[in-house]
Design a protein around this nucleic acid. Structure first.
Lengths: 214, 214
DNA sequence: CTCCTTCCCTAACAAGTGTTTGGTAGGTTA
DNA sequence: TAACCTACCAAACACTTGTTAGGGAAGGAG
């Protein structure tokens, strides 16, 4: 999906190669709490001291595990997108019909919201501004791939006569995309509806409408 | 709608009563540019120096017109909400049927997005965190009123048999509310679709669905 | 002319920001 | 025991933040 600096072997020109080796498990723990704070307060409003507070340590100690505040955000978003695309690619490779593909993508999306609520919330709030930054270029790449997948499926559905042809298809795309992801603003895991149940009702509204058929 | 400190006559306990009188027109100009920067960068990521840059002046000069950065945000949001509710109340007082009320509310909403794009974008991003702050309590009030208006209309529609009864009505409410307002993330005034045209297509999707009727 | 108001600038302030450096307690290894 | 590694603390750093105080240019009013 993307290249992360430092992932490949020891590069002599690497600026910072820590002479210590923090455990990946602890990193994950800290990233989870950081993601919660980011999601609740917003990235810019979150200070490293707030993250450290939530983790029960001091601000400077975070830099034993991470290069910077930005690299925490980076890792949170990249991890989420990797998992998201693993799910999406599976769906897209299944060779389903247009309607079934849309249904599977929507359901998969709600599962991702359930799994990565904090990361999705951060993505929703910050992606647009971050995508302009070179470091977060993979966000723009993801959006492009996202649009291709959804728009392509919709076009296929129109061609097959299962989706309405009288609608602006880009409008439809943004409509479905947005309706799915904004759910993160109110969805709470462990609520009265499972992700699958929410997906079912969302799909019913999007596909069939909320009005009674006359 | 709300009480703003300093709106009522000269209160002796008022903390800051400027001995100067900046012109309201200039305030509006500055608030418009401030709103653009807030919307583009996010409130917390926006420094007063960036606003001053965009306005062609220095940071300190802003304080001739405004008490604080926060009061700029306050005035931007309050002005927007006042106008929004003027439109909504007109619709709600018109005595329309449920479906027509929803249609009118959605259309009115897109007009507000067209008129107050920046303010709506700020509202979308920051309202949830701001509403907890006492100063921005009117945001929570507005959300309550908002929910009553929309949810009440939907319930009336279900009772009248014009809206489906097999859907979770709160889910439907959030669905419609979100689909309308997230449009601000991509909508640009002067684009190829007028607010009314977008409203028409949105309503067609929400009410009748995107699937072809069989 | 002088006075006054409007509007902005210059220059600084204290608080808070992300980050670095050196140190150290506790456990593991030799 | 000695050497070492992990994970953190304590204290500071350079910088940015919102905000303030005093001053001054421009223009209209008397």
């Amino acid at each position: 999906m993307r290249e992360r600096p430092g992932d490949n072997g020891t590069v002599p020109t690497a600026k910072k190669k820590p002479n210590v080796s923090p455990s990946p498990e602890r990193r994950r723990e800290l990233l989870d709490t950081a993601a919660e704070v980011f999601a609740a307060q917003g990235y810019n409003a979150t200070t490293v001291r707030k993250i450290a507070d939530a983790a029960g340590m001091l601000a400077g100690s975070l830099y034993y595990h991470f290069d910077s505040k930005e690299s925490m955000l980076d890792e949170i978003l990249a991890t989420f997108l990797d998992e998201l695309w693993a799910g999406y690619d599976t769906v897209l490779a299944a060779g389903l019909g247009p309607r079934e593909t849309i249904e599977a993508l929507v359901t998969e999306s709600f599962r991702e919201i359930d799994r990565h609520r904090a990361a999705v919330a951060i993505y929703q709030k910050e992606a647009r501004t971050l995508a302009t930054q070179p470091r977060f270029g993979y966000l723009a790449d993801s959006q492009t791939k996202f649009e291709q997948a959804w728009l392509g499926t919709l076009e296929r559905g129109v061609a097959d006569g299962v989706f309405r042809a009288d609608l602006d298809i880009r409008l439809t795309y943004r409509f479905i995309r947005d309706t799915v992801w904004v759910a993160v603003s109110w969805y709470r895991p462990g609520g009265q509806h499972s992700p699958e149940e929410i997906a079912r009702q969302y799909l019913s509204m999007v596909l069939d409408g909320v009005a009674v058929r006359t």
